[in-house]
Design a protein around this nucleic acid. Sequence first.
RNA 1: GCUCAGAUGGUGGAACUGGUAGACACGCAGGACUUAAAAUCCUGUUCCCGUAAACGGAGUGCGGGUUCGAUUCCCGCUCUGAGUACCA
Length: 1029
Amino acid sequence: MDYQFKDIEKRWQQFWASHQTFKADNQSAKPKYYVLDMFPYPSGAGLHVGHPLGYIASDIFSRYKRLKGFNVLHPMGYDSFGLPAEQYAIQTGQHPAITTGDNIATYRRQLDQLGFSFDWSREVRTSSPDYYKWTQWIFMQLFNSWYNKADEKAESIDELIAHFSTNGSQGINAVADEEVATFTADEWNAMGEEAQQAELLKYRLTYLRESTVNWCAALGTVLANDEVKDGVSERGGYPVEQKKMMQWSMRITAYAERLLQGLDNIDWPDPLKEMQRNWIGKSVGASVRFGLERGVRSEEPRAKIGERGEENVPETPHSETPLPATFFEVFTTRVDTIFGVTFVVLAPEHELVTALTTPEQKETVEAYITQTKKKSELDRMADTKTVSGAFTGSYVLNPLNGEKIQLWIADYVLAGYGTGAVMAVPSGDQRDYLFAKHFDLPIVPIMDIQNIETEADPTKEGKYINSDFINGLTYKEATAAVVAKLEAVGAGKAKVNFRMRDAIFGRQRYWGEPVPVYFKNGLPYLIEESELPLILPEIDKYLPTESGEPPLARAEGWKYKPLPNPPREGGLLEDGQSKISPSGGDLEGAPYELSTMPGWAGSSWYWYRYMDAQNNETFAAKEAVEYWKDVDLYIGGSEHATGHLLYSRFWNKFLKDIGLAIEEEPFKKLINQGMIQGRSSFTYRLNPLLLNTDDSYVKPEVYISKGVYELYKEGDFDTIEQIALFYKELLPAPAELGEMDFSKLHADVNMVSNDALDIAAFRNWRAENDKAIFILEDGSVIYPTDEANHESKFVCDTEVEKMSKSKFNVVNPDDLIERYGADTLRMYEMFLGPLEQSKPWNTNGIEGVFKFLRKFWRLFHNDQWEFNVNNDAPTKAEFKSLHKIIRKVEEDIERFSFNTSVSSFMIAVNELTDLKCNKKDILQDLVVILSPYAPHICEELWVLLGNEAGTLSYAPYPVFNPSYLIEDEFAYPISVNGKTRLNLNMPLTLEPKEVEALVLANADVQKYLDGKTPKKVIVVKGRIVNIVI
RNA sequence: GCUCAGAUGGUGGAACUGGUAGACACGCAGGACUUAAAAUCCUGUUCCCGUAAACGGAGUGCGGGUUCGAUUCCCGCUCUGAGUACCA
């Protein structure tokens, strides 16, 4: 039979499903290998041709690893909470769970069609209560943990409480909020429950805090930093504003150092690691305290800042005057330049600005602040050239020499980074330099070799000048000396600063995991573990309430009512009275948290759930986690570089700290598959200007082929003339033709093949095309009545754009599978080019892969399509072809070069076809090697070859035997002065000297020598001969 | 601006440690088969000179360098894509 891909593929997909061929075992004598794909968000549009690229690669790798004797875990699931389903729900009123369910069904059908070897018994859906129960559970573990810097790990909050009650806050080195209190054990024990809880919240790894958030009013929610692009929301492009809100946050900053260090030990693409490093943004430097100069008059109460550690403040000459604070801190990476500081700048939003502004400067400063507020985030970013700022009228004191320094505000200092204040060193920092020049502030050189004529010179070379006790020292010496001095006088210390902020963990949205928390007197408490999952309640509308509360506030009677049985603290009393709110006697129950978890909650641990997806007792059994440990290969897009991949590493480290995970890093090796862009097709339509027309007739639709259009555009007179004449003939008498114009119109790429338009399909596409006239590439014309054969084609123009419905360039895998089959599509997607490289999708060329599979099929069949394979002993040439491909494919797969292995398969099949090889000894091995790429056709041939159905997936990978590739002759390329001139066959046993003699004796070589003696002859054995004259 | 990645025929791409540039495939051109079309098969296809072949010249974004030999290494530049953005 001919190659019937439809039958074959359907049959084997059913076989794999019904026999659970790819079900992985959680224990095995084989070594484990975990291949993970970034699970998809099931969108309504279904899969387009770009989505499966990574899945195909990971599937090939999984199948290959099974052949190589590994116990492979290769699961798939759905990241099924998310905004699009909710937006759809808002528009249609349909519950997001229904939409999501439908979309998942579509995805599943599409994935099944591609013949993936997923173990579907482990499927997860983040929106399923069985799954989000454990997402909530992990949230509870985070709530019950704090980060102990002494041990560099997370520990139970109970240990912290124990420490507080015996030692107070003394000796605790934690990552916590800035304003943690200092207290003794007695003071702690004397605190009320609420005061204690409020204090503990400052330590918990997930905590509630008023923070500035990216509020997107149009989406009605808060967005993470990585969801905001250029000041607008990444999804939908709605405006985003800064707003203060009470928010759940994750103390990811506790892990900043470990997240940074961990990058050194994982095999990820360098650009991606670099992105994470930049995101974490570690800078090593020092914090320096600048004392405030007396004379500040202010009605403001004392600000909080600077209250702690006041005893360390250097004495200021007139300390009797009350100040809002006695100092503030700046962060600097160049503490060695401290004697070059000629002014200090605060962010306009800095808390001390109002208090430190003198009455004389009040107007100027306020005007400047107003101006800054007006500027949108975008303007502030774009406008980096203009220098602006305002003098506060106050002075600060250099802590090392007591010098009086002007205090300015300027919007180039960001409130959100460091302390929101910088010490300006105009001689060494270009921004400071421009600022100083603009406002005529002093610039003091501090290095002997510094050149500050036209710009700042940040050099670290040379010796210090104008710098007090560090004069004459080098950079390294000076830095150490300054830090030591600052510490000695209590005016600063070495400090590491991170750009990364704690991650906001909440959305004012419906379609997400409910936070397992209720409130008592404004303080958050966890519900009981036994009460998990906290199910997402039904609501009438998926919108915020009129009062602006999140959608969950609409849920009727959705209050925390502790179960009466078993009775427990915080629950109901035996008589049924609630203990929850002692003050209010709240029988109604306590309010739940109304925001839901963000999109990244469910995806930050899902690879563990795959290890033990059905477990109802725990998030994944200990034995399962100990067996699979971590992901060996993770494939997905680089767009998750600073979101998912950072949060996942964070949660993994936390899970390791509390003993639930084994490895410090979750994903050992990661590959980014490139993005597939769309390749749009365009037609050119004539739009002539018609003079003297009335509305009694319609302009004829005339399309011209690309080549004709180009001739026209180049001003080819004949073409212009002909088109005008042609068009004129189409028009009724009264019309006069003016100038010709063209519309460039998208044509659906599915009607275009190798840039040639399928005219019949195009006519059917839209009503107005029905009567269209086409001028083809050679100038011939097709009329609506005339569909006969034409020699020429109608060629479309092309352009690379984003793949989107509106550009008519979406290619759906379903159509291609229908036409060519899954095996062809799988191989074609790999054949397209290197996996990591982004490229436009182009269906041109898929025929070549299809032809290859037919040719492969034909190797096993005779001219009548009868199966025809014999048991004869293969020849040397046949063995050579086979072993070449065994080695090549193995090498290629190991370095994820799938495109080159597809080429090699083509070469092998071409060779074996030429050799007319139909020997089982060769073809059976070839089936095994090809099966990861084209599993269906290989399963079919495997059975035809007499093997048991279903055993191919676990067959042994053929062993490469190098003896088949040993050559005894080699055609040496002979080059003269580096230019290859001819090839000479010589035995490989010859030594370079013998080769040289043979080459120089050759008559053809003599011709090139032209009687001269070569200066030098280079012979690389088995490679090349180069003669230099 | 900074960081990273990349630039090879008409197209996608290959050349893995410096050793025959353009494998493999698409497209195109010509041919075979066919009443015809589709399918299939064969031949050619980097560019320039030349009717053609032999032959000759140029050639991996541009300009230099190292080397017997450079798509590969070094220096400088141009362009494209991605990330990031006043980070102190």
